[in-house]
Amino acid sequence: MKTNHAEQPETSRRHFLDWILKGGFLATLLGMFLPALTYLWPVTRRGPVGGMVEVGREDDLAVWGAKKISIGESPMILLRTPQSFKAYSAVCTHLGCLVEWSADKRLIECPCHAGFFDVEGRVISGPPPKSLVGHTVRVVDGKIFVKL
């Protein structure tokens, strides 16, 4: 039987090591799972973008008014006619300038080479070869949603 005295430094050192080990394991576990909890906490109002995206409120857009919006990396133009809402890619089909809404002409125009599109996105005059790409718009509970 060893004496207590001789054992003391050995066992205390061993206990110290054990403490570090246990603490270390606990720290490792916590280090793995605590960030996971923060990760799971919803960080934005919506998750990944895809499908219908909310772009504004119905009341914010006057009839025959328009708004420039950006969904993901796609610039778009949102129009309101007395009958419905319309959304088109704001990229002009001629050379890629961003189109604008002309309230007095009630047409979508491109500032670069005077291309004009009607409210259906069809080319009326000018160099653009194709109509603007349209996107589905839905209004739910006064909120405007556009499909990417």
């Binding site: 990760y39 799971l40 906490w41 960080v43 990944p48 973008v49 895809g50 499908g51 993901g72």
Partner: peptide, 27 residues
């Protein structure tokens, strides 16, 4: 953890991975 935010559709898969890489904490 990735499954929580990943979307397995052609339209959303890429965007969801982009989301994971940029938005959630430590994603």
């Amino acid at each position: 953890l990735l499954l929580v935010y990943y979307r397995p559709t052609v339209n959303e898969a890429f965007e969801s991975v982009k989301f994971i890489m940029t938005k959630p904490y430590m994603g």
